[in-house]
Amino acid sequence: MSFLQRSRLFRSIVRHGLPDSVRNRALVTFTNFFLHIQPVKVRLRAMQFTRTFYLGGLSAACFFILVVTGVLLMFYYHPSVPRAYEDMKDLEFVVSSGVFLRNLHRWSAHAMVALVMLHMVRVFFAGAYRPPREFNWVIGVVLLLLTIGLSYTGYLLPWDQLAYWGVTVGTNMAAAVPVLGDQIRFLMLGGHGVNENALIRFYVLHCVVLPLALTVGIALHIWRVRKDGGLYLPPKG
């Protein structure tokens, strides 16, 4: 093992030695692209479970599971009518573990919406929304809207009765906006009703635009947690 760790190949990938010293442990966080979004050191009080209940982290974890299962689902899905619905049936009866894949994606999506909301509640009651974290709270609100947008655009994709009427109800609400209502609805649906044009719009938003926006947003958000002085800790005493 330590022979491997000293090899030139290994050292070209991970430049520091075993994380057995404080220096090397710091380097793990410093030099790893995926970890360096975190601080090198954490205050013990910030690590208590009840400080965050890991709600922000678990929201991000849900998003990760959703991206992985979502990409796998994309291999089996055509955004057209009636093929979209037939693909759901294929997932059920033809694709190996197709039902499981779809279930995991669906339940993770619901879990993510719930976790993000709970995270927001946690942050509020902790008082962590106040300066200097006020802008990170605003970024958070945007993340919440993006999360709901992702969930909602995904809701149409199976093209079953639930999807169709769920989206019809929602977009009819958008039509209630004064003056511009019908135009907004037309923009969302690419037509006057929920049809194939709406499906392709929701598909592109769901698989490309919103996930990209959310990825950037989450990175910004977690980075700002550090830049705003780490987790908010109530003053002692």
Binding site: R25, K41, R43
Partner: peptide
């Protein structure tokens, strides 16, 4: 504040 290393604790 007492602190610890992110890796491996966090």
């Amino acid at each position: 504040e007492p602190e610890c290393m992110s890796f491996p604790h966090l």
